[in-house]
Structures are given as structure tokens and as C-alpha cells.
């Protein structure tokens, strides 16, 4: 069933009679078992939108349905909603507080009122899922490396068994190795747990090869909502929004301009190389 967003708007009131419209009539659906990239530059409204999805912020207009029910309806259990729509904030390592990693990951399940045994089981499963074995369980979260802290924090949300997992710029501030590790981990989680993942980012290069749907936000509006290759066809428009298509697309576009009949709808280096090799013909085969 998933989430259904019906014509929502949101206006921030910032003090001296200044109003900022952060979201402007957004409608979309976030179905089950889907990998979605939510892209937009700073201030485009993407962080506001994700905080709507688990009920942390209430839209000033419109409604949000989760599995068919209005999340701001009378008597709706929003605490349970937050377990089902998990949200991992930017720099999530800043939320760690317990004495050891395992207890920190158990914080979410405990808030759900589960038995101690069940909390422990979920926490250790989640930690294994993010690649943190038993040797980490009793460590202080403050002694972990940057990448490990972030994985522990993700496990903390995972332990609530969300149906939809939203990650707000999970690779911010990480080095290329940390970034690849986290992104690899997320796509593995997607495959194993068959949940919906919403990956918030401002880098097309990061999300392009993982996601099967891209939502682009600009000035509080949802501009595109389509499969990656369709969205990247608008790379000129993306640039006016301070975004860009993956670098490899620009390379292929340029080669095509120069007269090489290459395929411009590629998303990674491997398929780009395939396409170039194909149009080089026998001339390209150094060995022949």
C-alpha cells in the first residue's frame, strides 16, 4: 500500500510576519518495495517533505495517507507510524547517546514497548544487517569511527522494522570509501528486506545507479517523478535548478555531438564502455 501524498503544502512562519512556503501543492505516491531517489538542492523542500512523511511536521494543507489511513486523522497512532516509516536524519551519529552500541540500537524498539528479549533480538539482527558484528555490541558508540557511528545509527532505525526507510543524505561528510560502503549497504538492505527506500541526496552520481525512480524537487515543488533515464533526459533543466545529470551522461552526449553513434542513456561506466566498444567496430579491437 505505502504512502500516498495528496496535494500537500507547508508554510513556515519565521518571526516578523515573514512566511516561507517550503512545500507547494505536492502529490505523489511512495509504493511498497521501491527504491526512490529524492533529489534537490539545499532549500528545495526535500528535508521538509521527508519530515511530513512520518508525521514530525504537519502539512498546512492536504493529507497524507499511510496504508490508506490519514496520518493526521483523529486517534491515529503516530508513534506506530514512525516505526513503520523510519527516518534517518542527516548526520544521524549525533543522536547516539547510550553507554553501548547494542543499547542504543534497542532504544527504538524499547519505545515501542516490546519485550526486552525481542528488543535485543531486533537490535542484534539490525547491527548484523549493517555489518557490525558482536564485537561492536558492548563498545561505546563514542569510540567508533565516523562510518561505524553512522551505520550504528541506521541500525537504530532499522530495528523498528520499518516498511519504508527514508535516509536524509546518508553519505554527507563521508570519504569515498565510506560513501560507497553506506550506499552498498543500503542497496543490499533493499534486496534482503524488500522494503521501500527513499534516498535523499543532492548528488545524481550517487543515486543514479541504485534507484529505480527519481523525484526531483525545486522551490518546494515536485518537478519530476520518473525512472532515472527519463529524468536525465532533462539534464539542461536540471542544471537551472542547481543539479546535474550523472557525469557519464555528459561524456556520452559530447561523444555523440562529435559524431560517434553512442547510446546516451547509460548510467554507469560499464555500460558506457559497452556502447563505445560496440560503435568502434572492428577498428577498435587492438588485437585483430
Amino acid at each position: 500500500m505505502g504512502l500516498k501524498i495528496e496535494d500537500i503544502s507547508f508554510t513556515y512562519e519565521t518571526g516578523t510576519a515573514m512566511q516561507v512556503r517550503a512545500l507547494n501543492h505536492i502529490s505523489c505516491e511512495i509504493p511498497d518495495d521501491r527504491f526512490i531517489g529524492l533529489i534537490g538542492h539545499t532549500g528545495s523542500g526535500k528535508s521538509t517533505l521527508v519530515q511530513m512523511l512520518n508525521g514530525l511536521l504537519k502539512p498546512t494543507q492536504g493529507r497524507i495517507l499511510f496504508n490508506g489511513e490519514d496520518i493526521h486523522g483523529d486517534g491515529y497512532d503516530r508513534k506506530n507510524l514512525r516505526a513503520k516509516v523510519g527516518l534517518v536524519f542527516q548526520y544521524p551519529e549525533h543522536q547516539l547517546f547510550e553507554a553501548d552500541v547494542l543499547s542504543d540500537v534497542m532504544f527504538g524498539p524499547r519505545n515501542l514497548g516490546l519485550s526486552e528479549e525481542e528488543c535485543r533480538k531486533r537490535a542484534s539482527e539490525s547491527l548484523f544487517m549493517v555489518g557490525m558484528g558482536e564485537r561492536f555490541f558492548k563498545k561505546s558508540p563514542f569510540d567508533l569511527s565516523g562510518g561505524e557511528k553512522r551505520r550504528a545509527a541506521i541500525a537504530g532505525v532499522l530495528a523498528m522494522h520499518p516498511q519504508i526507510l527514508i535516509l536524509d543524505e546518508p553519505t554527507a561528510g563521508l570519504d569515498p570509501r565510506g560513501r560507497d560502503e553506506i550506499l552498498g549497504l543500503i542497496s543490499e538492505m533493499k534486496k534482503k528486506l524488500r522494503m521501500t527506500i527513499v534516498l535523499v541526496s543532492h548528488s545524481m552520481d550517487d543515486v543514479a545507479r541504485y534507484v529505480d525512480q527519481i523525484m526531483v524537487m525545486n522551490n518546494g515543488k515536485l518537478v519530476y517523478n520518473d525512472v532515472p533515464s527519463e529524468v536525465f533526459r532533462h539534464h539542461k533543466e536540471l542544471e537551472t535548478m542547481g543539479l546535474s545529470a550523472p557525469q557519464v551522461i555528459y561524456i556520452m552526449e559530447y561523444l555523440k555531438e562529435r559524431g560517434l553513434p553512442v547510446n546516451t542513456e547509460v548510467l554507469d561506466i560499464q555500460s558506457a564502455a559497452d556502447s563505445i566498444m560496440a560503435c568502434m567496430g572492428p577498428a577498435g579491437r587492438g588485437r585483430s
Partner: peptide
């Protein structure tokens, strides 16, 4: 907000 996302009250 981050703790509320982990169902803290």
C-alpha cells in the same frame, strides 16, 4: 526530532 523518529516521547 531524530529521537522522535525513533519513537521517543
Amino acid at each position: 526530532k531524530a529521537q522522535m523518529a525513533r519513537c521517543a516521547e
